[in-house]
Write a protein that binds this DNA or RNA. Structure first.
Length: 340
DNA sequence: CATTCGTGAAGACGAAT
DNA sequence: ATTCGATTTCACGAATG
């Protein structure tokens, strides 16, 4: 809150100063009125087209001027009120875009004179607080950026608000524990979102995140492991059943009716249970188990899908399905289900 | 012809050293 | 830090229907 205030104040004062400057500038212009070299008529400045034009004969005196005036378009209600966006140019090279004040470390005044010890002490205190405000701002900015990313990715992947919330909490904790240093904001944001889906028992295969996040898959994984270790996130291994819903929806929405989808899912759930009994799941990737179970279910239920179709819908490959589904079928045959 | 099946090479990962 | 073993993926060709 208070940091926000400081910032807006800084901005307003800069703005006012600019505005004053601008006023004196136009006054100066009026004093040294230009006349047209052709007809001696008055020259008017067309700021919109960045031209100096003679009012009488239309001669263009000077063009391609830079328009230093305020922008008169309004982008939000605040801007609409002041109809102005002037201020110091911002830079991305500084974490606060250079909008905060910087206090020199030298104990000199503006004329280079040594300042009194009392002033020196005051300056020292000011520097301390300035640094506090600045770093607080930096953290806030970091969060803002990260939350923006999280929101964007979550929208793209259709992840629920509740999971986003969790992701934000994870990210905030990471920031507080200084785990971001040396890592990209986007990387940590992605990892936090991935962790959140795991924490909320709504896991997504990690490569889905890669499609929306510019960050390499390996980095997402690395950062995720780091976060979960450092933050003691208690994340249980993914149950392949968690994937069934999504995968089957993905697979069936265009092909078959909801009833068939349901029986497919029930059967696949059954198969996974059996497979777990037989310890077929340990060491294998949960997505493999899920997709192989779906393929097996599709055979049993006689709702055939090709391995290729399932592989596409489940972020695995046909080969992996092949390698898994036969042993699943074996186990399942010896269990409740008997096929001819 | 599409689908399924099998294989070897290569990469990633975890556990062990 | 390296090594080893299991898993997954890729690219390919053969078998099947």
């Amino acid at each position: 809150m208070s940091s926000n205030n400081t910032q807006t104040q800084t901005r307003t004062t800069t703005e006012q100063r600019r505005r004053n400057n601008r006023q004196t500038a136009t006054e100066n212009n009026a004093d040294t009125a230009v006349t047209c070299p052709e007809c001696e008529g008055a020259v008017i400045a067309d700021e919109k087209q960045a031209e100096l034009v003679c009012e009488d004969c239309g001669l263009v005196i000077d063009e391609d001027q830079i328009d230093r005036g305020p922008e008169w378009r309004a982008f939000n209600s605040t801007e609409q009120r002041n109809k102005s966006r002037v201020g110091a140019p911002t830079t991305n090279t500084m974490h606060d875009k250079g909008l905060t004040t910087t206090i020199d470390w030298r104990d000199k005044d503006a004329y280079g004179r040594q300042i009194s010890s009392r002033k020196r002490q005051q300056m020292s205190r000011l520097r301390t607080w300035q640094e506090r405000v600045r770093t607080k701002n930096s953290g806030e900015r970091n969060l803002k950026h990260a939350f923006g990313e999280i929101d964007r990715m979550a929208s793209a992947l259709g992840i629920s608000d509740q999971v986003r919330e969790t992701a934000s909490v994870v990210y905030r904790r990471a920031l507080e524990e200084d785990l971001i240093r040396g890592r990209s904001i986007e990387g940590v944001a992605t990892a936090a979102l991935y962790a959140a889906t795991r924490l909320s028992n709504a896991p997504r295969p990690i490569d889905e995140f890669h499609t929306v996040s510019r960050v390499e898959e390996s980095e997402i994984n690395r950062t995720y492991l780091y976060l979960s270790r450092e933050l003691d996130l208690e994340i249980s291994p993914v149950d392949p059943k968690e994937y069934l819903n999504r995968f089957i929806n993905e697979l069936t929405s265009t092909y078959i009716n909801p009833d068939e989808a349901h029986s497919l899912e029930r059967r696949a759930t059954d198969i996974i249970e059996e497979a777990k009994e037989a310890n077929l799941h340990s060491g294998r990737s949960p997505t493999s188990i899920a997709s192989a179970a779906i393929y097996t279910a599709s055979i049993i239920e006689k709702i055939r899908f090709t391995q290729k179709e399932i592989a596409n819908a489940t972020e695995t490959t046909e080969v992996t399905i092949r390698n898994r589904y036969q042993e699943m079928l074996e186990v399942y045959k010896d269990g409740k289900y008997h096929i001819e």
